[in-house]
Amino acid sequence: MTAKIFSLFVLNVFTANFILFRFLGMCPFIGVSRRKHPAFFMSLAVIFVMVFSSIITWALYNYILLPNGLEYMRTVSFILVIASAVQMIDMVMLKTMPALHRTLGIYLPLITTNCAVLGVTVLNIDMFVKDGKAVSGGFLFSVLQGLFAGLGFMVAMMIMSGIRERLDVIDLPRPFRGIPIAFIVAALLSLSFMGFNGL
């Protein structure tokens, strides 16, 4: 069990990092990684939404869709649940934690259509539901995968924003300024993270 959780951690944070290897969540990665501060709060919001969505989509799939033979409704129902969950988090946060809402709030709407969130929920089902039956510990693994995937997102975002802040003060060759250099750096990061293969 511990070994499985550890390997899930390494997988999601490093060797199959959502951004660098699975390519989920590229748009916010490229768009919001220019500065450390927003990158951090965006990642925090993503972790929050990923864990929350993992919990409710797991329940939705295993207790409502599966028993009623509605598996084909997965995509439609998941995206709706995620969208409304984000909306709800937004409202609850506004009422109860206005300070946090001021920093995270602007990123929440962006997350609705962040493919990393839908990606992690679909991946949970693909990995932890076999032949129409949840594997043992599936719920725990799903929630943890939500958490670790979010952490992996944060790791990539933070490293990237640190590097991009430094590149800002460098006179880069014109063709590479902005988005192209972000991709090249991501490629080199992805190359170096391959060192953890097999851990």
Partner: peptide, 29 residues
């Protein structure tokens, strides 16, 4: 730390080059 982790528990026998690359990425921090 990274070199030892890769050598002792990772898939590759040697981790010197990867560990330096990863730490290069953290230099701004």
């Amino acid at each position: 730390l990274i070199t030892s982790i890769i050598r002792l528990w990772g898939g590759y026998p040697e981790g010197v080059s990867y560990s330096i690359l990863m730490m290069n990425a953290l230099v701004p921090y």
